[in-house]
């Protein structure tokens, strides 16, 4: 598909599991010689990270082809992939009749701004690639991660793996997106909450970190170009691209 000159971009229809199985089978010489946008998220993270490591061109962590393509998702995707724009991604502000925003609110774990290459995707997939040659170098990167249906103790285990593997200590900043159905249940009952786990791992790193950005297994999501330079503002909860993702 990458060698086919008629194909301008490659969409994942959906996520799932097992994408990493095909990594050793991909012809990265051909892929690198034919840069074109790859779009998707969730298990497609295996491709995003492998492409960042082996293909060296931008891919888009955004809705899969069968995802919801509402105006919020579409506008961000179009700006990045059609217009070559450098948008500032921020969560949508709802019309809640409340003093404090609840839906789409962000939480600053460590204040400040940071810039670096955007690298990341699904935390489970990323953790599963640790120790393999399919991970890019995270030095100075902005790590963005999300997940679904993972109890806090599992999130803790994966983040501990990233810490012990030296990834967290290399980062310039971190954005934790949506973690759908990640509440305490089963073995986590009575243990740490997700917020506590994130605070434990990220709070002491001394780099800007915020939680709650609108990407992951949700209807409205950012289209984050993997590999491009961006600046995050952990106080405002924004991700601003510093260069276009396409030519």
């Amino acid at each position: 598909m990458f060698a086919d000159k008629d194909v301008r971009a490659v969409f994942a229809v959906r996520g799932g599991w097992g994408c990493a199985r095909i990594l050793p089978l991909l012809d990265f010489a051909t892929i690198r010689a034919n840069p074109k946008l790859l779009i998707g998220f969730s298990d497609i993270t295996a491709l995003h990270l492998a492409f960042a490591a082996r293909a060296g061109f931008t891919t888009i962590h955004g809705p899969n082809a069968s995802s919801s393509w509402g105006k919020f998702s579409w506008d961000g995707f179009r700006a990045v992939t059609f217009d070559g724009a450098m948008p500032t991604f921020a969560n949508p502000v709802g019309n809640e009749d409340r003093l404090v925003q609840r839906v789409g609110r962000i939480r600053t774990l460590h204040p400040g701004k940071a810039s670096g290459r955007l690298l990341g995707g699904n935390l489970t997939v990323l953790a599963a690639l640790m120790g393999t040659p399919w991970l890019p170098d995270f030095t100075g990167a902005i790590l963005f991660i999300e997940d679904i249906a993972e109890a806090p103790y599992r999130i803790d285990r994966m983040l501990t793996q990233l810490a012990l593997g030296g990834v967290l200590g290399k980062l310039a900043g971190i954005v934790f997106g949506q973690c759908v159905d990640c509440g305490a249940s089963g073995p986590s009952y009575g243990g740490f909450t997700l917020s506590q786990v994130l605070q434990h791992h990220f709070g002491a790193l001394g780099v800007p970190v915020f939680q709650g950005a609108q990407f992951g297994h949700v209807a409205n999501q950012f289209s984050l170009p993997v590999g491009v330079r961006a600046e995050i503002d952990a106080d405002l909860g924004t991700i601003r691209l510093l260069e276009p993702a396409v030519i």
């Binding site: 060296g56 059609f82 393999t132």
Partner: peptide
Amino acid sequence: TTAAAPLALVKPPRL
């Protein structure tokens, strides 16, 4: 990890 060294970033063509 055996992380790959950063490659020079190539930009794909826009849609």
